[in-house]
Design a protein around this nucleic acid. Sequence first.
DNA 1: GCTGAAAACGCACCTGG
DNA 2: CCAGGTGCGTTTTCAGC
Lengths: 153, 153
Amino acid sequence: MAVRIDDLDRKILAELQRDASQSLDEIAKTVSSSKTPVWNRIRKMRDAGIIGQQTVILDPEALGFEACFFVLIRTSEHEADWQKSFLKALQERPEVLEAHRLAGDIDYILKVRVRNARAYDAFYQALISEVRVHNVTALLSMEEIKSTTALPL
Amino acid sequence: MAVRIDDLDRKILAELQRDASQSLDEIAKTVSSSKTPVWNRIRKMRDAGIIGQQTVILDPEALGFEACFFVLIRTSEHEADWQKSFLKALQERPEVLEAHRLAGDIDYILKVRVRNARAYDAFYQALISEVRVHNVTALLSMEEIKSTTALPL
DNA sequence: GCTGAAAACGCACCTGG
DNA sequence: CCAGGTGCGTTTTCAGC
């Protein structure tokens, strides 16, 4: 599981995170190696699951997704059944971009992207009708100051 | 600015989000069109900034980033200068993956990924020594239930 | 594990419907 | 605005070092 990653691997990952459309030659040059070793290492890390999905980042505003909420959820229910249906509800709703189970006072946090406040309300109503939650606080984002998927290797 | 996006464009974007490494032919086939129009539309949307960075999603756990925190920040300072230096601090810290300015009670929320709790504490100490904040609450993620960059087109 | 070359493949562009 | 064709760059593989 814990595949050993050396310094060259890290450099390759950093380049891929920065721009995955680069050619092997370009990557090889910037990490001061050459095509074949870079290709072998990428393959190895892909197979190991370290490198996952290759995707494009779209501009949410340009596509009309103008509202972003962070939703803090407290629940009184902690049985396996409840949790299962809650997780299922989250997985099925595409407007939920992230969901974490938390330690402490607040049980879950969600990041939800929708077209506008009305769409958020529709989401909220649908969610609370599907699963019982004790307390929900929505934090409305006014401005996305920073957004990256790049891990600090 | 508001480039018109039609249904075919949306299908293309969905495919690119799903897997950006696909060949033009594959995308063309799944959206029931053919190479040239798909290519022209992708180019148009790239130029319009709708399609941004092409990247890979790495597995944080496999790379030793085992701790993820959401940080809720309240501040009493609302002057332009303070805000400027706060934003700069966030931009410069690679462990801050997301930062939003919020409406309401809480002023900012951050998503921070680090190797362990110690590394978070180091980040926290560094941050509060750089800029004055009134109140900080850290929410520790126990489990990433869902994580996607895909907008629900 | 690396180099270098060679074959298969896909892209970017263009010309003409 | 779309179909098809083509030259060129890139990926992928496979020898030998």
